[in-house]
């Protein structure tokens, strides 16, 4: 992705711009698409429009995961985020109503604008403290946990996909907990809808 060669150990001190990945046009386009879809979802009043925008948003995010070298997450996002979630939303509006309103756009009230802008300002203040994107000495990439998994995963689990190895072996109980959550959610949905089959 980046044409700049990076000395891993030793070498000259890197400026943040050299150490990190610079913004490519593809990245910029995807980010703009994702943020645009989110904005459209936020201002539209028609719920069907909001759902379509959020499905497009999910798909854009899935592409972003591929660019960030997370294929497993991208597959899950495309199947579950863009697929199943959209289906659930569509089923919901099929069973309820689409509000028919004269206004097509939803514009912010001053009260909400103040709260959200304050929230964004506080979060934005933390951005300069983050390591440059893709920097090899960023805390997560450089951590001993990451090194341990990458070095020992194949030897200990005989699975070449480290994400699968961590998901199903090292953090197997975590995944069991996830399955319990899905089961509980299924039971809750059936209970709330007072029926045995969700059609």
């Amino acid at each position: 992705m980046s044409p700049i060669p990076i000395p891993i150990d030793g070498g000259a001190v890197l400026t943040p711009l050299q150490a990190g990945m610079t913004l490519t046009p593809l990245q910029a386009a995807i980010l703009a698409f994702v943020l645009g879809c989110a904005l459209v979802a936020a201002v539209l009043r028609d719920v069907l429009g909001v759902i379509i925008a959020s499905a497009a948003y999910s798909l854009g995010i899935a592409v972003l995961w591929v660019i960030l070298r997370a294929p497993d997450v991208a597959l899950t996002e495309a199947a579950v985020g863009a697929g199943v979630t959209t289906l659930l939303f569509l089923l919901t509006i099929a069973k309820t109503v689409r509000p028919s309103d004269e206004r097509r756009l939803e514009l912010p009230s001053p009260r909400t604008a103040v709260v959200v802008l304050a929230f964004v300002a506080v979060l934005a203040a933390t951005v300069p403290a983050m390591p440059a994107i893709g920097s090899p000495d960023a805390p997560v990439v450089d951590s001993r946990v990451t090194e341990y998994y990458l070095e020992n995963a194949y030897e200990q689990t005989e699975v070449k996909n480290v994400v699968t190895a961590v998901l199903a072996a090292y953090r197997g109980f975590d995944t069991l907990g996830e399955a319990v959550v899905v089961f509980a959610a299924g039971v809750a949905v059936l209970l709330v809808l007072k029926r045995e089959v969700f059609v």
Binding site: M21, A70, T146, V163
Partner: peptide
């Protein structure tokens, strides 16, 4: 996922050449 990324890193599948991006945040997000 951004925090797991590293420049020139490949997906954390050991059939690829290293260096790899960090697998742990991917698992948590899955």
């Amino acid at each position: 996922i951004t925090s797991a990324y590293r420049v020139g890193g490949s997906p954390p599948v050991l059939t690829n050449e290293g260096p790899y991006v960090s697998p742990l945040p991917h698992v948590l997000i899955l």
